[in-house]
């Protein structure tokens, strides 16, 4: 079976990468192939990396409040590259009230602080496996 390839990324200027790194390690321990971009990624850079690395999943970590700006821009960059079917998930400090609109635009799930990594791994395995 093909291993699931996941791109874990920190868009925008936010430097809080503890959660992104912990989730990336959990993906790796679950047997996924993980590409971690590090900080300060623009939507263009993320979409381009997703294309080059041929990933199945993109996970965005956002704690800066820029989610309502960054997700739509990333989705349009993905569409421009024919990648709109990739599984797109997000995590971080994202208010409950913002989640329905993010899902409506194509984000599969948002995981807020306190979510067990096992739950995220199971979600990705079920949807991208």
């Amino acid at each position: 079976m093909k291993r699931i390839r996941v791109l874990v990324t920190k868009p925008g200027l936010d430097g809080h990468d503890r959660g992104a790194k912990v989730v990336a390690r959990a993906f790796r321990d679950a047997g996924f192939e993980v590409i971690y971009t590090g900080l300060r990624q623009t939507p263009e850079m993320i979409a381009e990396t997703a294309l080059q690395e041929d990933v199945d999943v993109i996970g965005l970590s956002l704690l800066s409040g820029a989610h309502n700006t960054i997700f739509p821009r990333l989705i349009s960059e993905l569409k421009a590259r024919g990648l709109e079917d990739l599984l797109l998930i997000g995590g971080g400090v994202i208010p409950e009230g913002d989640i329905p609109s993010l899902k409506a635009m194509g984000v599969a799930e948002i995981f807020t602080p306190g979510t067990p990594t096992g739950k995220i791994v199971d979600f990705v395995a079920a949807r991208a496996g």
């Binding site: 925008g12 300060r40 700006t69």
Partner: peptide, 18 residues
């Protein structure tokens, strides 16, 4: 904090947030 004015490309969506 990263030394950009508010009209910089990388500032989009981040101005006044944190």
């Amino acid at each position: 904090q990263i030394g950009y004015d508010s009209d910089h490309e990388l500032a989009l969506g981040e101005v006044g947030k944190v």
